[in-house]
Lab assay of single mutants.
Amino acid sequence: MGSVRTNRYSIVSSEEDGMKLATMAVANGFGNGKSKVHTRQQCRSRFVKKDGHCNVQFINVGEKGQRYLADIFTTCVDIRWRWMLVIFCLAFVLSWLFFGCVFWLIALLHGDLDTDYKDDDDKSKVSKACVSEVNSFTAAFLFSIETQTTIGYGFRCVTDECPIAVFMVVFQSIVGCIIDAFIIGAVMAKMAKPKKRNETLVFSHNAVIAMRDGKLCLMWRVGNLRKSHLVEAHVRAQLLKSRITSEGEYIPLDQIDINVGFDSGIDRIFLVSPITIVHEIDEDSPLYDLSKQDIDNADFEIVVILEGMVEATAMTTQCRSSYLANEILWGHRYEPVLFEEKHYYKVDYSRFHKTYEVPNTPLCSARDLAEKKYILSNANSFCYENEVALTSKEEEEDSENGVPESTSTDSPPGIDLHNQASVPLEPRPLRRESEIGSRR
């Protein structure tokens, strides 16, 4: 089982795998120059863009038009607004034209077009017409509009002379109601789609790998820009990579689940303020055997998904993003964004995407760390350097704002901070800030 798991979770494809794949392509008759073999020097295209759209195009789909027309309502909801407006206008105009032609044909076959009612006051002739005051196609078209929109100006009306005319008036009224219901329903469904809710759900630009509770963890940050909550919010993550099976089958995008606390339930989050999602790199993680150097040379993509129900409509929305291997910062942490004021908490989104480097973060893999092949620094050293990194950030910001350097908390000259780390230190809580992250 261990060997199978290692093969499945191998992220960085070796040169031997690339040569094996190329040999397979030639042997199977696919070596026509169009096949692409992804190596370390040639990274694959992003499968999920940063804005959440999937970078996929469908080609050679059989009976595409028929399949889309069979699900016309979903098609109308998914198309762009400009095409929705075109369909909206065409549906009414074509129905008016169709029934206008029908009423014109009825008048033509009944002989109503030969009668001039402007110079004739004989009401008996008017009563013999199928539709009064309809003696041309324009008049028939206007009567069709008046019937379907129930305008009723009063000059044109159907008589009991022709039952077919009466039937067409009733039929057009029913068709008009159906068109109204369909168009209004599609427009309302399109307006109520929770897709735009994703514009106020954000992911951090970069993911980070750092120590948390004595273990290497992959972390990324999510935030909600609205005050309205995302009900039943939960997160998922998958690692996408290519691999070759033991039988020699090439899988271009193998999807591997990344555990973010599904078993323990901590994948469900209360997204009021930005939260750091934590994936513990343990023996079940696809990143277990990867060191910093392996991450730098790897070719994979981590897709992160945030799902929840919109509070206003109770409709489920899904926000997506992805991180390539070069977008994962090893040995970094996110800057705090949640600050405790006197009577409330304040979230500073200008710090949302910012990170700071944490010294002495192990550069080895989580496996080597678990097997004690890498000796961690003293816990006080880690905490102290973590505090120094934050303090230096604040000093830089104070210097930019014009604060005198004498007010900063610099260490005395001639003292090495790293050498001082081995000395037991008193706890130094942050002056006014605390970061709330997901705790395992």
Rank of each mutant, 00 (worst) to 15 (best):
S3L: 03
V4I: 12
T6W: 04
R8E: 14
R8T: 07
R8W: 03
I11L: 05
I11D: 15
I11K: 04
V12S: 15
S13M: 08
S13T: 09
S14Y: 06
E15L: 06
E15Q: 10
E15V: 04
E16N: 05
D17Y: 04
G18S: 08
G18I: 06
G18R: 07
M19A: 09
M19L: 11
L21A: 09
L21Q: 09
A22N: 10
V26M: 09
V26G: 13
A27F: 05
A27N: 13
A27C: 05
N28Y: 05
F30T: 15
F30Y: 11
G31I: 07
G31V: 06
G31A: 12
N32S: 13
N32Q: 10
G33Y: 06
G33F: 07
K36Y: 04
K36W: 04
H38A: 12
H38S: 15
R40W: 07
R40T: 14
F47I: 08
F47R: 13
K49E: 04
K50T: 02
D51S: 06
G52D: 02
C54T: 10
C54M: 10
V56F: 14
V56C: 13
V56I: 08
Q57N: 13
F58Y: 12
I59D: 15
I59Q: 15
N60W: 06
V61S: 14
V61T: 10
G62V: 07
K64S: 09
G65W: 15
R67N: 12
Y68G: 08
Y68D: 05
Y68C: 14
L69A: 12
L69Y: 06
A70Y: 04
A70D: 07
I72W: 06
T74P: 15
V77I: 13
D78F: 08
D78Y: 05
R80M: 07
R80W: 03
M84K: 14
L85P: 12
L85Y: 03
L85C: 06
V86M: 15
V86N: 13
V86C: 14
C89S: 05
L90W: 05
L90Q: 12
L90D: 02
F92C: 14
F92K: 09
V93L: 15
V93R: 00
W96L: 15
W96Q: 02
F98E: 00
F99V: 00
F99T: 00
F99L: 01
G100C: 02
G100E: 01
C101I: 03
C101L: 15
C101G: 15
V102A: 10
F103K: 00
F103S: 02
A107E: 03
L109R: 15
G111V: 02
G111S: 06
L113W: 02
L113E: 01
D114I: 13
T115F: 06
D116W: 13
D116I: 15
D116A: 15
Y117D: 00
Y117E: 00
K118N: 00
D122W: 01
D122E: 04
S124T: 12
S124E: 03
C130F: 07
C130P: 01
V131P: 03
S132W: 02
E133L: 03
E133S: 09
V134H: 01
N135R: 07
S136W: 00
F137L: 06
A140F: 03
A140N: 02
L142V: 05
E146G: 06
T147G: 03
Q148A: 04
T149S: 12
I151D: 03
G152C: 02
G152L: 02
G154I: 02
F155T: 11
F155M: 10
R156Y: 03
D160E: 09
D160H: 02
E161K: 03
E161I: 01
P163C: 03
F167T: 15
V170F: 06
V170L: 09
V170D: 00
I174E: 02
V175G: 04
G176A: 05
G176Q: 14
C177N: 05
C177L: 13
C177Y: 15
I178S: 10
I179V: 11
I183V: 09
I184V: 12
G185I: 10
G185L: 12
K190L: 09
A192R: 03
K193V: 06
K193I: 05
P194F: 04
K195L: 10
R197K: 11
N198C: 15
N198M: 13
N198S: 12
N198A: 11
L201W: 08
N206P: 04
N206K: 04
A207T: 03
A207N: 01
A207R: 00
V208Q: 02
I209Q: 01
I209P: 00
A210H: 07
M211D: 03
G214E: 13
K215G: 08
L216G: 00
C217F: 07
L218A: 05
M219C: 10
M219T: 03
W220E: 00
R221G: 01
R221M: 02
V222C: 13
V222I: 09
G223S: 12
G223E: 03
L225M: 05
R226E: 14
R226D: 11
K227G: 08
H229C: 11
H229E: 07
L230V: 10
L230Q: 10
E232H: 13
V235T: 05
R236E: 08
R236S: 13
A237R: 00
Q238I: 10
L239F: 12
L240T: 08
L240P: 01
K241V: 07
T245P: 13
S246F: 05
E247L: 04
G248T: 06
G248C: 07
G248I: 02
E249Q: 07
E249A: 12
I251T: 14
L253C: 11
Q255Y: 08
I256A: 07
D257C: 11
N259G: 09
D263W: 07
G265V: 10
G265I: 13
I266G: 13
I266C: 09
R268H: 14
F270P: 08
F270G: 04
F270R: 04
F270D: 11
L271Q: 04
L271K: 04
I275N: 07
T276Y: 08
E283M: 07
D284G: 09
S285R: 00
P286E: 01
L287S: 01
L287F: 09
L287P: 02
D289E: 09
D289S: 12
L290E: 00
Q293Y: 05
Q293A: 10
Q293T: 12
D296G: 05
N297P: 00
D299K: 05
I302A: 01
I305E: 10
G308W: 04
G308H: 04
G308N: 04
E311R: 04
T313F: 07
T313Q: 11
M315K: 08
T316M: 13
Q318G: 06
Q318F: 12
C319P: 00
R320P: 02
R320W: 10
Y323N: 00
Y323S: 01
L324E: 03
N326W: 03
I328T: 03
I328Y: 01
W330R: 00
G331I: 01
R333G: 15
R333F: 15
R333Y: 14
Y334P: 03
E335K: 03
P336Y: 10
F339D: 14
E340V: 07
K342D: 08
H343Q: 11
K346A: 06
V347N: 08
D348A: 00
Y349I: 06
Y349W: 05
S350H: 06
S350F: 05
H353E: 12
H353P: 01
K354P: 00
K354L: 13
K354T: 14
Y356M: 15
E357V: 08
P359G: 11
T361L: 02
T361P: 02
L363I: 15
C364Y: 03
D368T: 08
D368M: 08
L369D: 01
L369M: 08
A370E: 03
E371V: 08
K372P: 12
I375A: 12
L376R: 14
N378P: 13
F382D: 03
C383L: 13
Y384G: 04
E385H: 03
N386F: 05
N386D: 13
V388S: 15
A389G: 15
L390I: 13
L390E: 15
T391G: 13
T391H: 09
S392N: 14
K393S: 13
E394C: 08
E395G: 07
E396H: 12
N401G: 08
N401L: 09
V403H: 13
T407I: 11
T407F: 05
S408V: 13
S408T: 10
T409C: 12
D410F: 08
S411H: 06
S411P: 09
P413F: 07
P413L: 10
G414Q: 14
D416W: 05
D416T: 09
L417P: 12
H418F: 11
H418T: 13
H418D: 11
Q420M: 11
A421N: 13
S422V: 07
S422C: 09
S422L: 05
E426H: 05
P427W: 03
P427L: 03
R428S: 11
P429L: 12
P429G: 08
L430V: 09
L430Q: 11
R431F: 14
R432L: 11
R432K: 06
E435W: 07
E435T: 06
